[in-house]
Amino acid sequence: MVLDIIVMIKQVPDAEEIFIDPVKFTLNRSQARGVINPADENALEAALMIKDKTPAKITVITMGPPAAESALLECMGRGADRGILITDRAFAAADTYATSLTLAAAVKKIGRFDLILAGESTTDSGTGHVGPGVAEFMQADQVTYSTSVKIEGDTIIAERELEHGIEVVQTPMPALVTMLINANIPRRSSLRRRIDAMRKGIETMDHESLGLPPEWVGIKGSPTIVGSLKIPEEKKRLNKTITLEEIPEMVKELIENKAIVLGDDEDA
């Protein structure tokens, strides 16, 4: 049996090259090059680690502009078998609902799958909605915040990293797993596979080939309304140097000003 694994990725602007427009509060990404969203690299690596042990076919999909092709080629360079770019002007300005719907339609079009892997969230929006959204549309089991995933028979065993420990989850396939950033160390692409990827090329899908009416996708299909944006004000630091003897007085003062709150950790 060959496992069918789908990895969902997004090309995001390199976080090191982004700055916030001080007037419009939008992200200025004009200087930033496109890179694979870091957690998605971990999702791909998780898929490749499964493929290292079990026969598997990895299909990487992304919704984005034509330039996102380079991210798919890089994924194929690392070992993915197939790259699909879901691109259409009609998809522009989609929120997480419309994006999940579109990606789920692509998954349906691809056909069968045993496992879908995705990054837990992206560096350019950080909602963490899309993985779970696709799982809901596909009515598949989902495991979020994972650091590892392995195959056992017809099931997957994933480790979830939570605040107070690790939760080990076993669930039957098909399933969707979202991977945390830094869950593993992504491998590098090889020259041989990159050349083959460029020769093979990537496939594309648009709203017509996915059978999605235009009003279901992009900004028209997005219920989210952004009210306003603001940058949190930078807090002024006191930069005080104090002696050992002054510490109790300082702590007392901080407690009085509610800068330190005493009590049990609410999750404990």
Partner: peptide, 9 residues
């Protein structure tokens, strides 16, 4: 030309 970046020979 076919160009591959990010790979070291």
């Amino acid at each position: 030309a076919m160009v591959v970046t990010g790979v070291t020979v």
